[in-house]
Write a protein that binds this DNA or RNA. Structure first.
Lengths: 213, 213
DNA sequence: GGCTCACATACTACTTGGTATGTTATTTGT
DNA sequence: ACAAATAACATACCAAGTAGTATGTGAGCC
């Protein structure tokens, strides 16, 4: 009864194949999907291919599940703050903030999400892979739509001003996703440090660079 | 006498190996560096490997030169507008605008730049490759520093307001670089369309999303 | 007529995704 | 409680693709 047909749930069935997802994400982040071999992932796990192919039928499926788990955590981070009595601009800020923090705290997974689906557009071979691919693209669009919806609410309630909501959201999400390129946690880093950084990013997105006047 | 020791100049010696760079960039953009084979690049050129290996000693060097050419065009686009009598905020806007247009008009090259150097951090084998890698990272940092410098000028002349110039610049450049992920030119697109899009992006970056007040 | 440039052709050594087959611990049916 | 089935891996192996090389070849130049 616990496993719904939610397309966002990887099959992490209480056991330790979440380890596999994390290890795969780290390898994909460091070397890129194609350069990282299954043996690399296994080595990082301290095991062999056998373990991975016991849970995943192909490298592609492994990648897809890493992507799913990353997107799942994105939704998990953002959805709790998107509704409420506050003005839309305030809720949107909270969403950006949460998303930025999620990027930092799930860096490997999110780097894979960013590295993303584009790569596979051309190399997806089997029809099943193409369907999965289409599904993942849909999930990404849905995620972006969450922000667009709240941004539109902000235009209506007067707390947000922009000439093109769609572009503005893409700009903001691009800025946050770009974290996966340049952000690397220092060893001594604390949660406070990350929150400070997230706040600065949100400030840049919401206030811009121009001095008021 | 024409070839200076400028690290930004790929060796495009009047002949047609610029074609190779473009074809390689397109392949790398579509399939990713590792998935794109030298034969793929050759096929796109309507020739064979022989031609490519006549000009480039390895796939890695080819990638590096694509990266160089992309960065060269970035500098070419931005540097002409970074100095002048205008207030810094205005010059910074112009730089962002030019950079965004450069992203759109050199999409393949810039996508490779974005896909970037990080990938090679782990797989760079020879000492020479490591040196080239370090060089490319330096060039990227220098490019970012261009924006930071003008942003600091803006803080001083009062036309720019932000709590952290470094983060703000990373946010802005991230937003622009993100174009390489989602922007794809429509067939009927004109230069005006691209300029309109660039203006919207610059507006988002400079004004933010919050309604003034 | 030789020499070099600008490629094309043919080939190799190696990597890598995937499979087929063990092997051991754990669960399950009775 | 015990055998049988199955889960959870490890080991050994192969076929396919690919970076790089060695060699050929025709056209232009000196």
């Amino acid at each position: 009864m616990s496993s719904e047909k939610n397309p966002l749930s990887p099959r992490i069935d209480k056991n330790g194949n979440l380890d596999i997802l994390i290890a795969a994400a780290e390898c994909f982040m460091e070397q890129g999907y194609h350069a990282a071999s299954i043996d690399d992932v296994a080595r990082r796990l301290g095991s062999t291919k056998g373990r991975i192919y016991h849970y995943y039928r192909s490298k592609t499926e492994l990648f897809f599940d890493v992507h799913r788990e990353g997107m799942r955590r994105n939704f998990e981070a953002v959805t709790p703050v998107m509704k409420g009595p506050e003005p839309a601009a305030q809720r949107l800020s909270a969403m950006f903030r949460r998303h930025a923090l999620s990027m930092m705290e799930n860096l490997a997974l999110e780097a894979v999400v960013v590295q993303g689906v584009e790569m596979h557009r051309f190399s997806a071979t089997t029809p099943e892979q193409r369907r999965t691919l289409a599904e993942l693209m849909t999930v990404r669009n849905d995620f972006e739509s969450l922000f667009k919806r709240v941004a539109y609410e902000g235009v209506e309630d007067g707390t947000i001003r922009t000439s093109d909501v769609s572009v503005a959201v893409k700009v903001a999400l691009g800025a946050i996703n770009w974290l996966s390129i340049w952000y690397r946690p220092r060893p001594s880093e604390t949660r406070d440090d990350r929150e400070i950084l997230a706040d600065k990013i949100v400030e840049s997105i919401m206030q811009g660079l121009n001095a008021p006047g």
